[in-house]
Design a protein around this nucleic acid. Structure first.
Lengths: 339, 339
DNA sequence: TTGAGAGTTTGAGACGATTCAAAAGAATCT
DNA sequence: AGATTCTTTTGAATCGTCTCAAACTCTCAA
């Protein structure tokens, strides 16, 4: 409707447009009297600066794109919150995009973000190899990979998933489990593959004393976790694993539910350990043990790297930050089979 | 770095900038030969259209802002996904902002969105009365209230929370509960107040046969739900309610956990019913009964109303859409006390 | 040969803010 | 008063794209 521009403000305050712009951007160089007059005009007209025009002129955007694999997984929401808190301090804005694991959607989001000339993009890529991303970066949009180690050509933040798997495995073995199941997803997802490799190495270190079963579901959802749980619950007790390591907490929650509906006690009949340590893990009826990732820190660090690159593109050297996961023991694995 | 513009493309293709623009926007009016030449130049240079300049020129934005109360509540994530699916079909983009229940943050987000001259704003306001929003709308940014009935000056989509509370109450009473607790939050939140009013009316309809306790927590989080649960579990059995109606599923999950840690059986010792029916409700160890809201539909409808207004601002009449909630009975309330 | 008409292409303004060299004004000193 | 310096204010140019009236090319008919 009635969107006012700088010119109308200038007219009403009887100054030039340059002066209005100065009031907006460097008020200290404008004399107090004029400044006051301009502010009044702004207030009276309900003027709101047009960031689009500003962006076009100065060439710098104030928004950062964050493309995640699955917004309905609280893990990514927490990463986003971390990023946003940093952006806030630089009065920038994070726009959250959901690729939902679909390369097509991911690409459409990237296109849109590039067209908007965002300051940069943080992304958990759907696929490991992504020439698209490299071209994007080459054309001048800084990219930081999140939860995905870069090949060296880009900045990245990640958590050592292999170590996470290893820790989970070691923990279960130490509690006396000798038949463990890895409840995973498609191995095309790097995170899943690494976590599996991790627990495998822990099992290997146990020198043949421990058996590792593996189930692969198409997606890392609560429903899939439940489905696997149903199948496990249906097994005769002597074929059933005594512990399950789930590729993420969503699956672990589903798995846990299946145990409950079939009257299997957790952790006595079957121990469970998840991954991510989302808030819902601690909130489960049997609080879930989990491999904790520094979720918000991941987001924070990613945007820090981005801002660093934007601040000084010449000097900037790409860095790969890797965090270590933690084991959080809760009730779902708090049972020692050896005793 | 090397962001190319339309002029460079025109030069390489040896046409005018007008022609390049035509190729981009109305390819059918350009002769096939020229069109081809322009496409080649675009490809060769890696040209990506600058949406900022386009926006400035045509005055129409392709993005919609969505400001929610709490991104970590999956309810809002689902609303967002609904909105996004519609936006997708209109090649627009939804930018998700989190007010986290803080009026200051809300306002900063609104400012930013208005400065970006977004197409419109969908918002679950922190406070019921919001002159800010009205001014925003008056200045020309269409606003649709989400999960909050409008006063008539704006479009809105909401769910009848009073009815939801009533349904929950009726259900529990019908199952023989005579001592029910409402586990709520601050009554300044309209949703909470309405849900409480709803169950109160159901209790009143039971003619003094039923007693309603009320607890109010400062926020609607898992942690608060757990805290209330702890207190309830500590009560002597004869003072303890036999059922709890929680203001949302997050609280219900926390409450449920407290029951589990204190060895109280759900639903035998205490029935629980939540609100929202987020996916985690069904995924709880004791699957939660809940009042279902059409979460995605809420988001879809909100953006539909917005697009309608944008398409024809003159003709547009503001509308208030209200949906009805549903009762979803699961195990957490599946126990008849009368038997 | 000329004119009409259809099909293409052109290029000069916008859009709204920022920037910066230069002009104007005010203050200080000789 | 005139010269010098410092403080304010001005306004034209610019960012990249779209729009639209005008110009240009053909073809065909008169």
């Amino acid at each position: 409707m009635a969107t006012r521009n700088i010119k109308e403000v200038a007219q009403l305050a009887r100054v030039s447009v340059g002066t209005v712009s100065n009031v907006l951007n460097r008020p200290e160089i404008v004399s107090p009297a004029t400044r006051e007059r301009v502010f009044e005009a702004i207030k009276k007209l309900g003027f709101v600066r047009n960031e689009v025009a500003r962006h076009l002129r100065v060439g710098r955007s104030r928004t950062v794109g964050l493309v995640v694999l699955d917004v309905s997984n609280p893990f990514f929401v927490d990463v986003a919150q971390g990023a946003e808190s940093v952006a806030d301090d630089h009065d920038s804005m994070v726009v959250l995009c959901n690729s939902a694991g679909d390369p097509g959607r991911e690409r459409r989001h990237l296109d849109q973000l590039e067209q908007q000339r965002v300051m940069g993009i943080l992304i958990t890529p759907v696929e490991m190899e992504s020439p698209w991303l490299e071209e994007l970066a080459a054309r001048g949009t800084p990219v930081v990979l999140v939860d995905s180690p870069a090949t060296g050509l880009q900045c990245s933040v990640a958590v050592d998933d292999r170590l996470g798997g290893q820790i989970a495995g070691a923990h279960l073995i130490e509690r006396g489990h000798r038949r463990i199941m890895f409840v995973g997803g498609p191995t095309s997802i790097r995170q899943v593959a690494d976590r599996h490799a991790g627990i495998s190495s822990a099992v290997a270190a146990a020198d043949g004393a421990v058996e590792l079963l593996t189930s692969t579901a198409p997606t890392l959802t609560v429903a899939e976790g439940r489905a696997v749980g149903e199948r496990v619950a249906a097994l005769p007790a002597d074929e059933r694993p005594t512990a399950a390591f789930c590729a993420n907490d969503m699956m672990a929650l589903g798995f846990l539910q299946a145990m409950a509906t079939h009257g299997l006690r957790v952790p006595e009949d079957l121990a469970i350990i998840g991954y991510d340590d989302i808030d819902f893990a601690a909130a489960a009826a049997v609080p879930l043990s989990s491999i904790r990732q520094p979720r918000e820190l991941l987001g924070r660090t990613a945007i820090d790297l981005l801002l660093e690159e934007v601040a000084d593109p010449e000097q900037h050297r790409h860095r790969q930050v890797i965090f270590q996961p933690d084991l959080v023991i809760r009730e779902s694995s708090a049972f020692d089979r050896r005793s």
